[in-house]
């Protein structure tokens, strides 16, 4: 189902990858500057929603490769999972843990894992709603 106009579909071709990249950027810098899991998740959900308007839900599903539903589940798993390392250390549930990745100067942390979980949940929830709605709509018409 191609619903988009020419301008929209051309714009989408450039915009979607940019938006996905931008969302990753927002996600990773979120701890220090405006951004974070919620915002990044919304940006990327917007990107795929745009893609879906142009190319139809099947194409978006193909592009995503995973069912957005699984994104929700995986996101929740990450969210809950990030709470557990603290337990291992004998600290209270959800206490943040930080590890330095040697050589790169990169900081890996449970809040980051948690934020990625948030990102996936937001992405999954919004897309589940939007894609399913479009599909049902199409069935009706």
């Amino acid at each position: 189902m191609k619903t988009g106009t020419l301008i929209l579909s051309v714009a989408a071709q450039t915009l979607v990858p940019l938006q996905v990249l931008f969302s990753l950027f927002l996600l990773l810098r979120g701890h220090d500057e405006p951004g974070g899991g919620f915002i990044a998740g919304l940006v990327v959900a917007g990107a795929f929603a745009l893609h879906q308007f142009v190319n139809g839900p099947e194409a978006t599903r193909r592009l995503l490769r995973v069912d957005p539903r699984d994104c929700i589940g995986f996101g929740l798993l990450l969210g809950v999972g990030s709470a557990l390392p603290a337990w291992w250390q004998g600290e209270a549930f959800l206490t943040a843990q930080w590890w330095e990745v040697p050589g790169l100067g990169l900081k890996l942390s449970t809040p980051l894992i948690f934020d990625i979980g948030v990102y996936l949940v937001v992405l999954g929830s919004v897309l589940t709603a939007v894609i399913t709605l479009t599909e049902v709509d199409k069935d009706e018409t």
Partner: peptide, 15 residues
């Protein structure tokens, strides 16, 4: 978070 949740609730209500 409230903004995002409100959207979730809205989509649920609308459907």
């Amino acid at each position: 978070t409230a903004i995002v949740i409100a959207f979730g609730v809205l989509s649920f209500a609308v459907v």
